[in-house]
Amino acid sequence: MILKGKVWKFGLNIDTDAIIPARYLNTSDPAELAKHVMEDADKDFSSKVKSGDLIVADANFGCGSSREHAPIAIKAAGIQGVIAKSFARIFYRNCFNIGLPIFESQEASDKIAEGDEIEVDADKGIIKNISKGEEYVAKPIPPFMQELISAGGLVEWTKNRIKSS
């Protein structure tokens, strides 16, 4: 899978309240959540972001709440994937469970600037910065997470387990 798009940059410790504020959690409708994505980090973000864009952030992206509404809002806003130095663990888990591609790379986070055009080879974990002519490597995805991805997320994986038992 190749993800190609324009980058929006965010900083350190972007928490789930910034990604989707709790005041909007009286619904789990993805389209509704997408209207408020990243609102408390950048209040105009949902009007600026275009389908196919990517987010690049510093460390500990997605810290705080367990709300799956956070990766759902990002995905429903059309964002193809998130690159960060590290992810908070529940957010990390949630992304694989719902099928939002994420990549850990210190170098990519440091060197990619807002507006850069990048291309991510999700299978190989290679991030190309087309604007700067650079290439970075993401941490490999653990084998079990790859199994989840190829099953199509945790629900499909569970469905297969129920069928085979």
Binding site: S66, R67, E68, I90, R93, N94, N97, I98, P142, F144, G153, L154, V155, W157, T158, R161, I162
Partner: peptide
């Protein structure tokens, strides 16, 4: 430990969960 909603969905079905 805290998990997401989909982890809970799978656990409600199987009674199990994966952990590192």
């Amino acid at each position: 430990t805290g998990v997401g909603s989909t982890d809970v969905a799978s656990a409600m079905a199987t009674g199990e969960c994966w952990f590192k």
